[in-house]
Write a protein that binds this DNA or RNA. Sequence first.
DNA 1: CCTGAAACATAATGCAC
DNA 2: GTGCATTATGTTTCAGG
Lengths: 157, 157
Amino acid sequence: MNQIELDSFDWRLLKALQTNARLSNVALSEQVNLSPSQCSRRLQRLEQHNLIEAYFTQLNASELGYQVTAFVNIALDKRQQNSDKDFKQTIEAIPEILECYSISGEANYWLKVISSDLPSLSIFLNESLGNLPYIQDLTSTIVLNRVKYSPYIPLPN
Amino acid sequence: MNQIELDSFDWRLLKALQTNARLSNVALSEQVNLSPSQCSRRLQRLEQHNLIEAYFTQLNASELGYQVTAFVNIALDKRQQNSDKDFKQTIEAIPEILECYSISGEANYWLKVISSDLPSLSIFLNESLGNLPYIQDLTSTIVLNRVKYSPYIPLPN
DNA sequence: CCTGAAACATAATGCAC
DNA sequence: GTGCATTATGTTTCAGG
């Protein structure tokens, strides 16, 4: 898409920012061995070239009352026209659905949802999702434990 | 766990930071209607109470050469001792595995992995993962399209 | 618990190289 | 394309309500 030449300084900047999005240019300059002003400029360049999609804060979900994570597989009824479009709009509007992907295989969509507890999850699955008219099949899996969460793209040196 | 009273200002701070982790205290103060100095203090308090787990930068994976995302379900061979521990160490060490959860149901673990392209994914699944001795079963699903990605915890007002 | 001002730190940019 | 110097912004402490 956008062709941009990245050098070792850029990789180091991206790496440092992946692990802490709030690093100042001074802090970055120490990690990448470049002057703060250059860090600032290069960062602007990386943002302009769309290599950085977002800076976001990961909150402690369980401290904030969301104790349960579940994965949901959904198959839509393809006979219904516009079901995909309606489905996507519905997905967007439900904040408990954090992620949604269309996938290969029998199910059409995979969702990551959070809920306060199991009873709430049950209600959510049955009412918010289960009642949608164009859903043919819905299966859910409860997350028992988070083993790894490091959404950091591997980068060269 | 940690009991901390959060008021409307705290919720607004967290909300603002979720969507942009790099907001300055001045910018935050405008969004939440509080002085910059108070934003700074409250933010420190929220961090100290562990409500904020990380500030991270989401990079454009496909621009950086990772065009393929896949989900992998893995069942471990329970007869092998210590297989869980070995497995977790292996998972941690492989950067292409971004997330891993232990889950209910037939499979033991669910993984999100990224790869440059389908041939690389195939090699990765067969060699890096498939060859582990304690794996009993491994199935993968290719992500066709990202419909929603907004890992923002729903918060009160 | 808050604001506002002062002292300090950092960011952005023009310029020389 | 980089570092340095300057000016503009931002951060944080502290006095005072």
